[in-house]
Every structure is written in C-alpha cells, then in structure tokens.
Amino acid sequence: MDQRSEVLLRQARLFQGHLLLVGLPADDLLGRLPNAYGWSWHAGDQAILDASFPERSQFGVNVPNWGFDAAVIFLPKSKDLTDYLISAVAARLDGAELFLVGEKQGGIKSAFKQMIHCGKPRKLDNARHCQLWQVTVTGAPPAVELASLIRVFNIPLTNGLLKVVSLPGVFSHGRLDHGTKLMLKHLDKLPSGHLLDFGCGAGVLGSAVKLLYPHNTVTMLDVDAFAAASSRLTIDANGLDAEVLVGDGIDTAPINLNAILSNPPFHIGVHTNYSATENLLRKSAQHIARGGELRLVANKFLKYQILIEKHFGMCEIKAINNSFCVYRAKRS
C-alpha cells in the first residue's frame, strides 16, 4: 500500500461518501473505500486499476463527470499541475471538503498554500513521512479550462519554426530543456521510414523530425495523458500528420520501427526511477527493424552507453556537452 494511501486510511471515517481520488496510486485504496472513484493520467497505473477495479477509475486530463461530494488530490510533482487540479476539482465542491495528501519530500509542507484561495486549510495528519490537509471550499472558484493554462514557445529549425504547445505537468512545461536542445542539433542522417518519439512529452522531437523529414511516418508515445494531449496540440499547431499513443513503456510501441528517438525521463514523482529507460534499452531492439537505430539523449552521469552496447553492440557518442550525451546505436 502506498504510504499516502495509508495516511488516508488512518482517517477513513472522513472518506466514506462519494469520494473522488485524484492522481491515485495503483494500490488497493479503491478496495478499502468502496464509494470512491479514481481519476488517473498515468497509463500504467490506470491499467492496474482497471484490472482490479473495473469502471472505478477514469483516465484523462479532465475532471470526471461522476457525482462526488468530496475529493482527495494526491500531490503531483508539478506545481502548475497542482494548481490546475485544485481549481478544477474545487469548482465542483462548493461548501464541501477538499483534501491534499503528499510526501514531505515532495513538497506537501508548502503545497497546502495552493489551497488558500478555496478556504482555510488545516492539517489533519502527519505520518508515514506524509501530511494530509483539508479545506472546506467556501465559494467555489470558477472552473479552470485546461486550454487557458497552455504555454506556447517556438524552436528554430533549419527549415522553419516549430511551435510547441505544452500543458501543466508535462516535462519542461513552457520551455525547451537542454537535453532536447542538444538532440535537435543532431537529427541528421536518420533512417527513412517509421520513427518513434518515446516519452514524447510535448512532442518536440517527433514534431521536429516530421518537419525536417516529412516523408517519414512519425509515432509519439508517452505514459502520461497530459503529455499525449500536449503532443497532439503541437502536431495540430504545426499542421503535421503524426500519431500519438498512450502506453506504459516500450512494450506498447509499434514494431519494425526504423528509428527510436528519446529524451527519456528518469524521475517519477519525487523518487529517482530508471526503470522505463532501462526497459527501453533492454527491449528496443525488438521494436527496431534491421538497419534501424536508437538515438537517445541523457544526462551523461547516467552512463547508459554500457546498457546500450549490451543490447545493440557498438554505441557511438554522437554529441556531448557539460551535462548531456547523445547516443546512437544501430541494429545489425
């Protein structure tokens, strides 16, 4: 059981009504709170919840239409996403209770201040390295449209500008991160055919490839519904034709790809997690056609070259700076 869920269950008497669990972990909390429903945007968590509690959790970027008389938000990593979730949920809870639970290491000790516009927050519990806060929504704020929180920025490419559209919670929201910036300088000599942007975020790499090599088929894949929505907005903003998939890891990717491009994440929430990237490096050769290649950018301290060489053979360092490496490996 997730430690945040354990904190909620210490106060289980408060959560017996029609409850919405926002960003809930994939544990047994729905089983312990039979009148609760979930809202998730992580495809892996949603698959587990669907298997254990059919039709008890909704996947996506918008507040479910279910009727609920209280809600618990599991604090996400992104402050912008927290603002959106609090405003969107509080708009449905005038005079009712809104709770925020999170790990101290994840910033819950200050995040409760984001609830002040809803009422006066009070701390209910402090256990399992977590805190639980409650606010009675006094005068529900107007519903926040997700589209109003979009951030747009332009990236110059050799054949024009790429317009990037990002939503709260998406990696490097509203700006180009340094790793992807380095990768964009080294998209030359890509194989022709079907290319995958793995962990696509706002769709920067996939959209750039489609602009630079319009004859290629481009697919983008991310585990996060907000990222997938952002990628679709970026595609539309540039008038591109590309596919966006939501799935948990490389296992959900197409096969017979001619190239996989990635600036893979190595953090989930407040915890360092390399599993998605390690799984990518271990299995990507199964998804790449002979003669195809993997091109990956990563913090150079991560030392992915050894893993890449283990599963592909020779791995070239195509570019390097003070912080990042671009790796290139070809499937023989």
Results as ranks from 00 to 15, higher is better:
Pro121Thr: 00
Val246Lys: 00
Pro121Phe: 02
Phe74Val: 07
Pro76Phe: 07
Tyr327Thr: 10
Val246Tyr: 00
Phe99Pro: 07
Val218Thr: 08
Phe198Gln: 08
Asp50Gln: 12
Ile308His: 10
Leu14Ala: 11
Lys303Cys: 05
Asn263Ser: 11
Leu24Arg: 05
Leu257Pro: 03
Pro254Arg: 04
Ala227Ile: 09
Gly60Trp: 06
Asp125Asn: 08
Ser275Gly: 04
Lys318Trp: 03
Ser87Thr: 14
Asn322Thr: 10
Met314Gly: 02
Asn35Lys: 10
Ile48Thr: 13
Gln134Val: 01
Asn279Thr: 15
Lys210Asn: 08
Gly23Lys: 11
Asp94Asn: 14
His215Glu: 15
Phe171Tyr: 14
Met314Lys: 14
Phe74Arg: 09
His267Gly: 01
Tyr327Ala: 02
Asp222Arg: 06
Asn126Lys: 09
Asn258Ile: 00
Gln11Leu: 14
Glu6His: 13
Leu167Phe: 09
Leu85Lys: 12
Ser166Trp: 05
His194Arg: 14
Glu6Gln: 15
Leu85Asn: 02
Pro121Gln: 03
Phe112Asn: 01
Leu261Lys: 06
His117Gly: 01
Phe59Asp: 03
Lys283Ile: 01
Gly174Asn: 04
Lys109Asn: 09
Leu167Lys: 03
Ala26Ser: 14
Ile150Phe: 04
Lys163Ser: 13
Arg92His: 13
Arg232His: 13
Lys318Val: 13
Leu149Asp: 02
Val137Phe: 02
Asp251Gly: 11
Glu243Arg: 12
Val89Glu: 02
Lys163Gln: 15
Phe301Tyr: 15
Ile235Cys: 11
Gln286Glu: 15
Phe99Thr: 03
Phe112Cys: 00
Leu8Asn: 06
Gly203Cys: 13
Val164Cys: 12
Asn279Glu: 12
Asp125Pro: 00
Ser148Asn: 06
Leu132Ile: 02
Ile255Phe: 06
Val135Ala: 01
Ala71Glu: 05
Trp133Cys: 01
Arg4Gly: 13
Lys181Asn: 13
Ala51Ile: 06
Asp94Glu: 09
Asn238Glu: 10
Lys300Ile: 01
His287Tyr: 06
Gly44Asp: 10
